[in-house]
Amino acid sequence: PDLGLTQLFADPNLIENLKKNPKTSEMMKDPQLVAKLIGYKQNPQAIGQDLFTDPRLMTIMATLMGVDL
């Protein structure tokens, strides 16, 4: 199971919303991170391994779920 990750990354406004959010806007200036996020739309399971190697993803996930870290 993808634990709902498919829906989190399926939002067509995902990148724009993250660019507008004060907690994630600075991160979204990294083209490699943006490319990763776009890739998760097609393969949400890929985030599982990346969560352990890129701490920014935890902040992004929390933001998408509405959790304040």
Results as ranks from 00 to 15, higher is better:
8 L>S: 03
60 I>A: 02
48 G>E: 13
61 M>E: 01
28 M>C: 03
50 D>L: 05
49 Q>S: 10
36 K>T: 10
60 I>K: 00
31 P>S: 11
26 E>S: 07
19 K>F: 14
65 M>W: 05
54 D>P: 00
24 T>E: 00
14 L>P: 01
64 L>F: 06
43 N>M: 04
37 L>S: 00
44 P>R: 01
12 P>K: 05
37 L>N: 00
59 T>G: 04
69 L>G: 15
8 L>W: 12
18 L>N: 00
24 T>M: 04
42 Q>E: 15
14 L>D: 01
10 A>N: 12
67 V>C: 10
54 D>K: 01
43 N>H: 09
55 P>V: 13
21 N>K: 02
56 R>L: 08
63 T>Y: 07
50 D>F: 04
68 D>M: 03
41 K>V: 12
16 E>R: 07
54 D>F: 02
2 D>N: 15
7 Q>P: 08
44 P>V: 09
42 Q>I: 10
53 T>F: 08
36 K>D: 04
33 L>G: 00
61 M>R: 04
66 G>A: 08
30 D>T: 01
19 K>D: 03
38 I>C: 06
20 K>F: 06
44 P>E: 04
64 L>Y: 05
63 T>V: 15
4 G>Q: 14
22 P>N: 08
41 K>R: 12
9 F>Q: 02
13 N>A: 14
68 D>R: 01
43 N>Q: 07
16 E>A: 10
46 A>V: 08
36 K>P: 00
59 T>S: 08
3 L>N: 13
59 T>V: 13
4 G>K: 15
67 V>L: 15
50 D>I: 04
18 L>G: 00
40 Y>V: 04
36 K>S: 07
52 F>S: 14
55 P>W: 11
12 P>A: 10
40 Y>S: 01
66 G>H: 13
56 R>M: 06
43 N>P: 02
45 Q>L: 12
34 V>G: 01
42 Q>T: 15
28 M>L: 08
47 I>K: 01
13 N>P: 02
64 L>V: 09
34 V>T: 05
41 K>N: 14
65 M>A: 12
63 T>N: 06
61 M>F: 12
7 Q>V: 14
61 M>S: 03
35 A>T: 11
14 L>N: 03
25 S>V: 08
36 K>R: 11
12 P>F: 03
6 T>M: 13
3 L>H: 14
23 K>E: 07
34 V>D: 00
22 P>H: 07
5 L>G: 07
51 L>H: 04
45 Q>H: 13
39 G>E: 12
17 N>H: 10
46 A>M: 15
65 M>D: 04
66 G>D: 09
57 L>Y: 04
52 F>Q: 14
43 N>W: 06
53 T>L: 09
56 R>Q: 10
21 N>M: 03
16 E>W: 04
49 Q>I: 13
49 Q>R: 10
57 L>S: 01
31 P>W: 06
51 L>Q: 13
49 Q>A: 14
18 L>R: 00
38 I>W: 04
42 Q>M: 10
7 Q>G: 14
27 M>E: 02
50 D>M: 05
58 M>C: 11
24 T>N: 01
21 N>E: 05
33 L>N: 02
53 T>Y: 06
11 D>G: 06
58 M>V: 14
8 L>Q: 05
45 Q>R: 03
59 T>M: 08
32 Q>T: 10
